[in-house]
Amino acid sequence: MRGRVSRKTIFGFIGPAVIGLAVVGIAPLLYALWTSLHFFNLTKLRQVEFIGLKNYLTVLTDEVFWQAMGRTFLLLGTALPLQLAFGLIIALVLHQPGLTLLKTLTRLSLVLPMATTYAVVGLLGQVMFNQKFGVVNQLLGGADINWIGDPDNAFLMIIFWDVWQWTPFVALVLLAGLSMVPGEIEEAARLETSSRWTVLRHVQLPFLLPGLVAVLILRTADTLKLFDMVFTLTRGGPGSSTEFISLLIQRVGFRAFDQGLASAQAVILLIITIILAQIYIRVFYKEVN
């Protein structure tokens, strides 16, 4: 009996959302596909012409593109392990009994970083990491470190802010997983062994897996999207040391005005995103289920 309604009714409910999302989400993608097959420069709009897959060939053989891609995954590969390690420690501490009030306050303060406007995180970075007036160098005992102007330090700074903003998220996800472990099972395990590691590995880990998978997928997607914070903090510099993939595409499209090439880069980024999402879903969802 359930759900036997006419097609017209179904369309009436779901049609507006489908049409709305198609207009703002799919139509632009098709237009990007069209643009990517053309020579399309914002300063030379009279010369728009069809050039087939030439833009794609340029992107695929372009060192700058793959360097930006590599940099993006380097960020993911360094920030994510730190977020997982710190996040797990925080979750385990919050999961312990006792100090209820302090833990409630800690949980609330964990909410703050992840709600903060990304652009503001970047601006805060400018202020706090300034070589001369910044509080970070002061807290490091009057160090004279050039954070924003040095390629390696700038990258470290981006890692710092990414970890600051998203460790709380990982911690709260893992905490939610820990609280799913039935109390009796955890108690029994603690009586059996005094090793916290054994309890974590054999009793708690299975409950943490779905959260870990979600974190992995979302952090990958968000790192590929990363723009606002880096743009306000370093604009991709110095040089191209913090030019992650979204910043590169923005620069090519809006500062070098080559919309055709930028669209080809965007389409390739989209394809990579889809492939990664598929791999993650295939590999992990089987294991979890």
Binding site: L21, V24, G25, A27, P28, L29, Y31, A32, T35, A221, L224, K225, F227, I245, S246, I249, Q250, G253, F254, Q259, A262, S263, A266, V267, L269, L270, T273, I274, A277
Partner: peptide, 18 residues
Amino acid sequence: ITNRMVSPIVLALPFFLI
């Protein structure tokens, strides 16, 4: 749901032109 995964820069280019 997969719209959550798509990088906004992918949409920003064509949306700007349109």
